[in-house]
Amino acid sequence: MRRERVPIAVGILAASGAAFFILPLLGLIVRSPWGDAIKALTAPDTVEALKLSLVASLSATVIALVFGVPLAWVFARVEFRGRNLLRALTTLPMVLPPVVGGIALLLAFGRRGLVGSWLDSTFGITLPFTTAGVVMAETFVAMPFLIITVEAGLRSMDRRYEEAARTLGAKRWTVFTRVTLPLIGPSLFAGAVLCWARALGEFGATITFAGNFPGVTQTMPLAVYLLLGTDHEASYILSLVLLVISLGVLVALRHRWLGSA
């Protein structure tokens, strides 16, 4: 393939833009004390935080799939009043400061919250300071990524395949599970992975809604933040771990599903 010639100004600006993303990563790599990497990574608190992060982010992704896919389907397929408003509300956490999201969650699901007070008085369930609270905070912040990806997939798919399935006698649920879902597979996968990666990196909503306690609510990003105050080097290493995981996910995603150039 012939290479496109790059206008000089575009080239300079693009290179500066790229450097803006690469330099911070470089900073982490250069400043990390590689000799202590193993020690930092195997510290009990780190292992616990990593384990909790994985469990919570994967749970958040599963929950996002269960509720997000039907929501995306409704947004893509059903016309109703207030659809745009509802869609905006469900994607709001993407642009909301996560701390604000955490406060909002407290006001709804906290011990004195709209739903939370009822949960507490009826079932004795309180969500703040629990791992469930972490999962909720992560789901709140990450699910919008799944919703918009899946909705875009649903909108761009050829709906005539669904019609073909109906002419073959398939009922709505069969059409959805056997035709629609497989056909939007790539979007579904991409959405789930983006959602997971976002959940893994969640900080603000988690610390606000679920607090911070090792093994229960202290996820990797929280551990990194707290280590920054005491042990810079260890926090650099953990930051790198998070960064490498996310980078791996995004690169793999691009290759596997978005097609590589």
Binding site: A164, G169, L183
Partner: peptide, 20 residues
Amino acid sequence: PTERRSIGVVFQDYLLFPHL
């Protein structure tokens, strides 16, 4: 509804399910 009509349709571009 379509799914309860006893019909068989061959579409112009066939619309074979690509994942099956």
